[in-house]
Design a protein around this nucleic acid. Structure first.
Lengths: 182, 182
DNA sequence: ACCTGAACACCGTTCAAGT
DNA sequence: ACCTGAACACCGTTCAAGT
């Protein structure tokens, strides 16, 4: 990669992170290009689709997922609390940007999605939590991590689109948790 | 309303129903106007926002909601089956058009939404089902119909956006049901 | 090899001119 | 009172011309 290319690439990612934080994942890419001081063609050369750009932004985000799972597993107390703690971390992680919950959750069912690798990270982190619960004998028979991702992702999507506050979301997560535990 | 105005109004609603069925609720309004043979201004005169048009389309849909609740309540068997039956009817009703689950579920939290009256119909139908369960002593303490709408709406939204088939959705609804019942 | 920016297509929205 | 369609703004996407 040429020096000016790398400079542009980095600048676009940096600006996109800022714009997406302000306006969500559906913000105008034209605006991103303008603010980054590059032509629209340059943006498209580096990131053929919006998802490719989102994927680049999420690079630094991967570490936080594992930390969140660690934190949940370090939790003292009954399995229900541990699961709920993970749920809240999970919702927070995919709700960092408006439109995130919908985008990430539907990417889980799309093998061709550019952000698929990020979804895998989420799944393996989720599996660590579920495995612990299984070992405790606290989890229902036949529960898959994909199902949990869809359920919690669904709650997060509704919360995101309806601008619900955490206090409103909490009881919804409790229902899901109770439905998953023995 | 003048005769030609009414003719245009009806024609737009009819065409919109068709276009939305083909392409979902996010289809181009320009296309609707073109197919209806009216100028874009005419469409905007009758329906200032997309939601106003969706609301008009949903007019005939209201009856089906009450029928669905009737059917669920006529169900024999344990409360869990009854609730799941209602859930499946609910998901089917709001998933008639692509984009419907997200639109309807988030309209529940928006007092200014033009389709709010339709949401109320859904809520009262849901309350009939919940009241029956409460009378049987089968429902958890403190469960609100709004929460149920969000949970099932969330599952429907994920299913809609990920093109999941009913067989995949069913276990998710079971988790929600189990979390809601005593 | 990479960038630029004009150009095109598409859509939503408004409004002056018409009947 | 209502309709029409041109006009504008905005956005995504492509590509010929430039370095």
């Amino acid at each position: 990669m040429r020096a000016d290319a790398k400079r542009n690439y980095d600048r676009i990612v940096e600006v996109a992170r800022e714009v997406f934080r302000e306006q969500g994942y559906d913000a105008s890419l034209d605006l991103v290009a303008k603010r980054a001081g590059v032509g629209p063609g340059t943006l498209y050369r580096h990131f053929p689709t919006r998802e490719n750009l989102i994927d680049a932004i999420m690079q630094s985000w991967v570490d936080r997922v594992d930390e969140a799972a660690d934190k949940a597993l370090a939790q003292e107390g009954p399995p229900r609390d541990l699961l709920l703690h993970w749920f809240e971390e999970y919702v927070a992680l995919i709700s960092l940007h408006k439109g995130g919950p919908a985008k990430i959750t539907s990417a889980m069912d799309d093998p061709a999605s550019p952000i698929r690798t990020k979804c895998e990270v989420l799944k393996t982190a989720g599996d660590r939590v579920l495995d612990w619960l299984r070992a405790e004998g606290a989890l229902r028979e036949g529960v898959e991590v994909t199902q949990v991702a869809r359920l919690v992702g669904g709650v997060a999507t509704v919360a995101d689109q309806g601008d619900l506050d955490p206090a409103t979301v909490r009881p919804l997560l409790e229902v899901v948790a109770d439905g998953l535990l023995v």
